[in-house]
Design a binder for these strands. Structure first.
Length: 319
DNA sequence: AACGTCCACAACCGCCGAAAA
DNA sequence: ATTTTCGGCGGTTGTGGACGT
């Protein structure tokens, strides 16, 4: 059944290609095209298996291959596409002219994966790495920091920084709690029909615009700190939004004003829970079926209580 | 200078699905 | 309908260079 692998074919060379072999392969393909890869090495005078020739051509010798360092833009595109497509390197490569799937795969494994990990982002899920113990500790820390910041006679600048830091931590906690609350099975995310989504068809004006938005800053958080009128933004399309990393949502995107969807989005992540009880959603009642997370919710409630007078939580609750 | 370790990348391996026989 | 062949894909390994001790 099937074919014998290259390695078992006797006498065929393996390992790195020499410049002479490259030249033989190039000359042959330039004259005749590659045709049948199996027949090619014999016709080209190469002591290699056809598969090895094909890989050498597609990953290295092809004239349209762009070599060299990946640009920041390419990096962002890869991260964003990976968040949607996963390890579909060949599909990712189709959106990066001149780059091979192998090259992208290597770049991911050697650079981008580590980069995301360093940022506390799970490179598989593109979601913040959640650790319940860390979350609880963080919530306690935040409670104390809120109290401390209100009593400490710091100067205004320092107080402002502390408030921003606390707000940042609050947001991180909120996002992580959202993760915890979404512990149910995520909806199976079929490979998106990209042309249907109008995201990646670059000949499409809308697609280009969206692509630009998505790739503008993949590490952009959907929370806008620069704006004094703090405006949390979350995607309203749950099917897509819950499967995209938070940085996929660009704050400038006006297509989906998500404020109204904020809390439903917390739980409506799967078809099973998408018809969530309306009252529950309005009252923001924790879902007690997540009993294993009860401590988290207690801390969550405490955190909300502690910060109930702050504009931060008021903004969110009012929305 | 010699050695060990780490890292990046090219190349290989094994599997799969589609097409051909 | 079954088997064989082929191209393609994702995961893994091997190798050479950079760097530190």
């Amino acid at each position: 059944m099937g074919r014998s692998p290259c390695s078992s074919e006797s006498g065929l060379k393996k390992g790195p290609w020499t410049p002479e072999e490259d030249q033989l392969l190039l000359d042959y393909i330039n004259k005749h095209g590659h045709g049948s890869w199996r027949a090619l090495p014999i016709l080209a005078g190469l002591n290699r298996c056809g598969k090895s020739c094909r890989l050498r051509w597609t990953n290295y010798l092809r004239p349209d291959i762009k070599r060299g360092k990946f640009s920041d833009e390419e990096e962002r595109i890869i991260i964003n596409l990976h968040s949607v497509l996963g390890n579909k390197w060949s599909k990712i490569a189709t959106h990066l002219p001149g780059r091979t799937d192998n090259e992208i795969k290597n770049f991911w494994n050697t650079h981008l994966r580590k980069k995301l990990l360093q940022m506390g982002i799970d490179p598989k899920t593109h979601q913040p790495i959640t650790d319940l113990n860390l979350l609880v500790n963080l919530s306690h820390f935040l409670s104390h920091s809120n109290l401390a910041s209100s009593m400490n006679p710091w100067n205004n600048a320092l107080r402002l920084q502390a408030a921003e830091a606390t707000q940042l931590a609050n947001i991180q906690l909120l996002q992580n709690l959202m993760q915890v609350m979404n512990t149910g099975p995520l909806p199976k995310f079929e490979e998106p029909n990209l042309s249907e989504l109008h995201i990646f068809n670059q000949s499409d004006g809308l697609a280009t615009e969206m692509m630009n938005q998505y790739t503008m800053d993949p590490f952009h958080q959907p929370w806008n700190f620069q704006n004094s009128n703090f405006t949390p933004k979350l995607p309203c399309d749950h099917h897509v939004a819950t499967n995209l990393p938070s940085y996929f949502e660009n704050g400038s995107s006006g297509a989906c004003n998500a404020q109204n969807d904020l809390f439903p989005a917390l739980v409506s992540v799967s078809p099973e829970t998408s018809t969530m009880n309306q009252r529950e959603s309005e009252n923001l009642t924790p879902i007690h079926s997540h009993s294993s997370n009860s401590n988290i919710f207690q801390d969550w409630e405490k955190l909300v209580d502690d910060g109930a007078n702050s504009s931060f939580w008021k903004d969110i609750i009012d929305s």
